[in-house]
Design a protein around this nucleic acid. Sequence first.
DNA 1: AGCTGGCACTCGAAACGGCGGAGTGCCAGG
DNA 2: CCTGGCACTCCGCCGTTTCGAGTGCCAGCT
Lengths: 338, 338
Amino acid sequence: MLSERRLEVLRAIVQDYVGTEEPVGSKALTERHQLGVSPATVRNDMAVLEDEGYIAQPHTSAGRIPTDKGYRLFVDKLAGVKPLSVAERRAIQNFLDGAVDLDDVVGRTVRLLAQLTRQVAVVQYPSLTRSSVRHVELLSLAPARLMLVLITDTGRVEQRIVDCVAPVGETLLADLRARLNSRIVGRRFSDVPPQVQDLPESFEPDDRPAVATVLATLLETLVEEKEERIMLGGAANLTRFNHDFPMTIRPVLEALEEQMVLLKLLGETRDSTMTVRIGHENFHEGLNSTSVVAVGYGSGDEAVAKLGVVGPTRMDYPGTMGAVRAVARYVGQILAES
Amino acid sequence: MLSERRLEVLRAIVQDYVGTEEPVGSKALTERHQLGVSPATVRNDMAVLEDEGYIAQPHTSAGRIPTDKGYRLFVDKLAGVKPLSVAERRAIQNFLDGAVDLDDVVGRTVRLLAQLTRQVAVVQYPSLTRSSVRHVELLSLAPARLMLVLITDTGRVEQRIVDCVAPVGETLLADLRARLNSRIVGRRFSDVPPQVQDLPESFEPDDRPAVATVLATLLETLVEEKEERIMLGGAANLTRFNHDFPMTIRPVLEALEEQMVLLKLLGETRDSTMTVRIGHENFHEGLNSTSVVAVGYGSGDEAVAKLGVVGPTRMDYPGTMGAVRAVARYVGQILAES
DNA sequence: AGCTGGCACTCGAAACGGCGGAGTGCCAGG
DNA sequence: CCTGGCACTCCGCCGTTTCGAGTGCCAGCT
């Protein structure tokens, strides 16, 4: 176990390094923090911290920088979540309140997060699988071609073209629409399949193929995994880490363009607690010198999706965590209202 | 007027510079192209080209690089549009054919363009103002709260929440829905306002406020300019211009994040001819060393939106133009089918 | 007139080397 | 267990040198 002072030294190192972006030495530390001990003592502490793997030196006779393990300890034990100022909270609210639809909410959120944290923001659309059905609409485009529109309680709208083998009459259409809605409106997506399983049988034999086709498309839409959509913003912030990053920025940009990677980044956990993944804890090459702060958000208690930011491991964790958490809360509120 | 050979020299300079990304000198030119003259002659030609402003040297006693004016001449007079190979065309078709809805089409297009040109791709969603109405749907969410869903012939779906002062009955809702649709389905957006202007008057006085509210929201949705949505991809390609770009990449990324800038980038022209904007021809700081190749696309003869790529002025214009044009054609086809 | 070879000149890029200073590890003494 | 002192290391900075690609110009050739 590390002594109280050694922890204090680690905290000071992290703070200074985050601020200056330069390796921090023993002398500078004692000058900028009231540790109450001499540089020499700090040096000894540093040696211990280095042995334990919390800090490292880029090369002999340079200052120390925190390792991933060091940041981990800092986040877990040494730092809290820094609450936002009143002004910031107000700004968030103002900024989000003007949203007209779901796309707009997500778009504003992503810009907001990027500005607030000065990092790359990632916002996942409310997941279909955890939403429930608000309404299903069936439209006739052509005699044998329908459009299926699915509206979720989070305001998300999905549409699909349905091609039937035979023309579908208006009466059948209206009938199907009514019965579908009465069965599944308000249901969670996962509950829909059993509800509609026997639906074709309640129709005339002639109509059953069409009904079955529509149902198939509907179920397909519900489970479609690729529809875990994600919006991303603030990529320009990557360039703020100019001096050593130009090499690093490339793989990061590439990674961020892949939906799958982004989804993994936000985390598989279903709960809405905040997760911080630091450096190599992200199992993706090129993201090894970045950290991810993510949290779930939702209209109720439960998370319907996640949002977060991606930045260098050398980031202001308390501030970032505060911003991410605050934004998630407000977005949840907005969704609950609509 | 420049002699034939001088033009040939300019073409050679552009081609070499695009290939090597390094200033090209007289000796290298004669070695890599059969100009039939000696380096000394080429030097004289270069001096003339420089006087005329087509090329410049970064510093005394270095090779020459084309200026914006030089690229302009190259694009206008010296280079054609390079058609894609059969394999490439096939790849495009395969890639786009799997799209399930409009979002998917646009998403695939943007990835495709980025891969094909190895640059940043920009695709505008089919514009609302040039689309026509396929269907309008009205749903009741709460007694006095409706959802308005607007579906366009290009597959785009817009939804809005409508808050009425008084509850709206199911009968009224069905009535309004039917009358609305019968009046505006198939109409172009610009034709809608006159069609619905007198609609409230045909309802009972009690119902008119609700009808008016719905209409107001509808019209608002139609004209909403901000709804010129845009998707962007391939930002990682920016990093390919490493050696001198790290400073330049920042403002470009920033510019690309602003919808307004992107829209201007694609061009205000309403027609579907291809436009190439080179360097300073883009009136936006930070995009002064980038070029934009854009073209309209649409399901019919007329363009419903634009797409294009953004890259360094030093780009392979013939190849890029070929790719952009080909992709636009295929996207047009896909839209026409759905 | 137009092309060519020759030549002196320019100037950036890369290689070299010396210096300064921040930082370290270690040790002896409080 | 802390502290001041001390010798050592090594990165980063800076001035210098060298190297070579490229230029402009000129005199001569066709």
